[in-house]
């Protein structure tokens, strides 16, 4: 077997430059430094942005099998199916339009009332539809790549929605694409409030796509199974009032300070093909300090308010 390998003709007897060992150790050290800097600071964000832009063709290529499969199945759909789908969509559009007409009036009324109350909370209106071009294949990270980037005014930390609720937020915006972290990522946390009782808390991702965890809710607080959790708008990153998750299980162990609560995201985390990027005007009063990361540091900032409705 060995004879088939090429002779190392051009291997110098006395190699110049660093030895293999020295290079390997240096590169490992460099990796550790990169990891540390990337974990602790945002200093590497510009480098990541440039590299993500440069590797955009790779993302497109990697998504090619699934996009072409979707295109093929799409173009082979029968006329009958399409007609049915079209009819159903028209019916839905009619219903939604009827609802929207009422919404417009309510929206206007809401705006007037808020002006009267001198409240700074505004309903955001501008959204952009983006397509998911890649799903992160690390099973331990819930991240997606979108086909909209800095060129479409996407910014780091921008909220991401689908038709049913909050999906996640943009992590890094590159020139023509951006990566986003989903709310189910184990490293993500989102400030929420119970739509029924108003109890505020933070919902953490668990790494499972159908489960969020609410670890800091006191046993006695007003939470029930089936309650809807909506974004509280605290922290200034997500607009307030969007559905996030539905409480699925509550276990109150009175020996423990906190109840064990799990919730199921209302957004269709694994099924969405198209998502909405929302332009959210920062709440000037609430987030006078700079908008922090939605990760643990932000959660820690929210902790003092926990459990107080």
């Amino acid at each position: 077997m060995a004879t088939a390998y090429p002779q190392n003709d051009d291997k110098p007897l006395f190699p110049r430059g660093l030895s293999l060992n020295a290079r390997a150790i240096l590169l490992c050290l460099l990796s550790v430094i990169l990891l540390g800097v990337d974990q602790r600071t945002d200093q590497l964000q510009p480098i990541r942005r440039v590299l993500s832009t440069a590797t955009y063709p790779l993302d497109i290529l990697a998504a090619l099998p699934s996009t072409s499969w979707r295109w093929m199945t799409g173009s082979l759909t029968s006329r009958n199916n399409l007609q049915n789908e079209n009819r159903e969509l028209k019916r839905q559009l009619l219903l939604q339009n009827a609802r929207l007409q009422r919404m417009d009036a309510l929206d206007e009324e809401n705006r007037r009332l808020r002006e009267l109350m001198k409240s700074s909370t505004r309903l955001q209106s501008e959204v952009l539809v983006a397509e998911i071009i890649a799903v992160d294949m690390d099973p331990y990270r819930h991240a997606i790549t979108l086909n909209k980037g800095l060129a479409h005014k996407v910014y780091d930390g921008q909220p991401l929605l689908d038709a049913y609720g909050v999906l996640g937020q943009v992590d890094t915006a590159a020139a023509m694409s951006s990566t986003a972290v989903l709310i189910t990522d184990a490293n993500h946390a989102i400030p929420v409030t119970n739509n029924r009782s108003g109890v505020r808390t933070v919902a953490y991702g668990t790494g499972q796509s159908n489960r969020l965890s609410l670890p800091h809710v006191p046993n006695h607080s007003d939470m029930d199974e089936g309650d809807l959790l909506v974004t509280s708008g605290l922290g200034g990153r997500f607009p307030a009032g969007y559905p996030v998750a539905m409480i699925t299980s509550i276990q109150r162990d009175y020996g423990q300070p906190f109840a064990s609560i799990h919730a199921k995201p209302t957004a269709h985390v694994t099924e969405s093909r198209h998502v909405l990027l929302a332009w959210h005007e920062h709440l000037d009063e609430l987030s006078s300090d700079e908008p922090t990361d939605e990760t643990t540091s932000e959660a820690a900032a929210d902790k003092p308010a926990l459990g107080r409705p």
């Binding site: 390997a24 490992c28 990796s31 590299l51 993500s52 590797t55 690390d138 990270r141 991240a143 992590d171």
Partner: peptide, 23 residues
């Protein structure tokens, strides 16, 4: 590093294992 950038993890996540293996 390319894998780190495209997979969206921390920079340097995959490099250590690969460098050690190739070493």
């Amino acid at each position: 590093l390319l894998l780190d950038v495209t997979s969206g993890g921390l920079l340097g996540r995959h490099t250590i294992g690969l460098v050690l293996a190739v070493w």
